[in-house]
Design a binder for these strands. Structure first.
Ligand SMILES: [Mn+2]
Ligand SMILES: [Mn+2]
Ligand SMILES: [Zn+2]
Ligand SMILES: [Zn+2]
Lengths: 110, 110
DNA sequence: TTAACATTGCAACCAGGTTGCACAGATTAA
DNA sequence: TTAATCTGTGCAACCTGGTTGCAATGTTAA
């Protein structure tokens, strides 16, 4: 199977029927360390993951916006939308970001 | 006591020794509904809350950035930094946001 | 004063996430 | 080839944050 949107540990557990949750968890952790996937905290209660794409640049400082649909609960990587250059307060040094916009997605909007 | 940064249920439970967790939880839920406080998902494992300030405008579409220090684990409301107007993909309609930048805060930076 | 309602604490529960451990298969060294 | 070792996996148990039912207590209004 293949996901168009971000996926959670539980979703994987459901789809990969034969594989144990702990194994999936350890694999996700590994993939994350290798920067193959990135975590998204969308506030839905469970951590989501998404494949890193060409130029995802997760290890570097720039990252993209995400969108969580409060209707269908899907979480999208808006890979086109990079977070703009922010003027942080003095001495604050940004390393990563977790940027999630929420609302209604195109599928759910009429 | 008073917090300069965002606080969690557990922090409140620790500080408000005499009050039960469930009571604090229900109060937080109530305050959130009344838009007195807002939730922040900073990815630290526990939901943080912060007081809504004059013009916080949490019910409306605009909201501010947050900063989570990966060193001291504090989460700051950057109330000055409103999220910019984003050109979302067609039909996507934004209602709220959870925007958390991560890195090292001023206190921890040298 | 009494009945109705609201607030609280306690304990139990739930879900997502995480870990220890033992076992089996694969890998490597003798 | 055989023995020793390493690796991947499942299972079960655990942890933590969050949430709820219920009974006891406190508050308000007739
Ligand atoms: Mn993403
Ligand atoms: Mn805030
Ligand atoms: Zn949707
Ligand atoms: Zn700090």
């Amino acid at each position: 199977m293949e996901y168009n949107t971000a996926f959670s540990l539980n979703m994987l557990e459901y789809d990969l029927v034969t594989v144990d949750k702990s194994t999936i968890f350890r694999t996700l952790t590994l993939f994350e360390q290798q920067k193959l996937i990135h975590k998204i905290e969308d506030g839905s209660g469970s951590t989501k993951y998404a494949l890193c794409v060409e130029g995802c640049n997760c290890e570097a400082i720039d990252q993209h916006f995400h969108f969580h649909c409060t209707n269908c609960k899907e979480t999208f990587c808006l890979t086109e939308l990079n977070i703009p250059n922010i003027q942080l307060p003095s001495k604050f040094e940004m390393k990563q970001a977790n940027v999630v916009l929420k609302g209604v997605c195109a599928n759910c909007n009429l």
